[in-house]
């Protein structure tokens, strides 16, 4: 589904990613872990196509398409979804409007009819129950005045309504209490199937207690330095990131998962 080869990227002119190799197949859940500044969030944002995140070398192939050539909205319509680390407040644009516009943009792209108002509201309400969100939040401006937990639930709600083929969660777990964490996990797990893949970017292994990944990758200085199964996350929890090999002597670490 997603094939990343030798990915180099800069943020505002600063080199952050230095040769990422990653293969993600349908149905898989990959966790990307690593210390602060290792490039985890950069990877997530590069995949979504954020401005100022410039790919300088390497390949990003998603479903046979070159992601580098697609605008952020085209990636989204093709089924790539980024749950933001810091969801943006948009005063004056209602949550429900955004959901509807997003879903219809995707449906239109696939040549499907727009959902009528009744079916749409029914779909949204069903998903809202799963993320335990108050209905009034639908009619408020996007994320405006939402608590940290509400913002993250809102990201998950959007994800569940859009049912992306590839969901990328950028530290969605950070700052969440245990109840909210469970809700996020429930949302992601409900998406798990043969067709959907998930990339979880996280600093802590706590989330992985609830969303069990198929693969865990450790990022350091813009490269994947170690890959393994979920037990790697547990090792990291116990031993920290200090014992991980640095990129220069870890050429073999990128073999392993998925490739």
């Amino acid at each position: 589904m997603l094939s990343i080869k030798n990915l180099h990227a800069q943020v505002d002119g600063k080199q952050i990613l230095n040769g990422i190799e990653l293969e993600v197949k349908p149905g898989e859940v990959h966790a990307i872990m690593g210390p602060n500044g290792s490039g985890k969030s950069t990877l997530a944002n590069v995949l979504a196509g954020r401005d100022n995140y410039t790919v300088t070398d390497g390949e990003l192939i998603y479903e046979g398409k070159n992601l580098r050539e697609l605008a952020p909205e085209e990636r989204a319509r093709e089924g790539v979804f980024l749950a933001f680390q810091y969801p943006v407040e948009i005063p004056g644009v209602s949550n429900i409007y955004l959901l509807k516009a997003a879903l219809n943009a995707q449906r239109k792209h696939r040549g499907e009819q727009e959902l009528d108002a009744i079916d749409f509201i029914a779909l949204v309400k069903e998903k809202m129950k799963l993320v335990e969100m108050k209905e009034e939040l639908l009619y408020r401006s996007v994320n405006e005045g939402f608590s940290g937990g509400e913002k993250k639930r809102n990201e998950i709600l959007q994800m569940m309504v859009l049912e992306p083929k590839l969901a990328i969660l950028d530290e969605t777990d950070s700052g969440l209490d245990i109840d909210a964490l469970k809700v996020v996990a429930q949302g992601v797990n409900s998406l798990r199937s043969k067709e959907h893949a998930v990339i979880l970017v996280t600093h802590y292994q706590r989330l992985l207690d609830y969303i069990v990944p198929d693969y865990v990758h450790v990022l350091a200085q813009g490269k994947i330095v170690k890959s393994g199964g979920r037990e790697l996350a547990l090792d990291l929890e116990k031993r920290g990131y200090g014992w991980i090999d640095q990129p220069d002597n870890a050429k073999s670490a990128t073999v392993g998962a998925g490739s």
Binding site: E73, V88, G92, H109, S141
Partner: peptide
């Protein structure tokens, strides 16, 4: 970018934000 990452086109996104303002 948030709007675009949800599939909303650049022009539509700009229009939404200006109208919201």
């Amino acid at each position: 970018f948030y709007l675009r990452a949800r599939g909303i086109g650049l022009e539509h996104g700009r229009e939404l934000l200006v109208r919201a303002f």
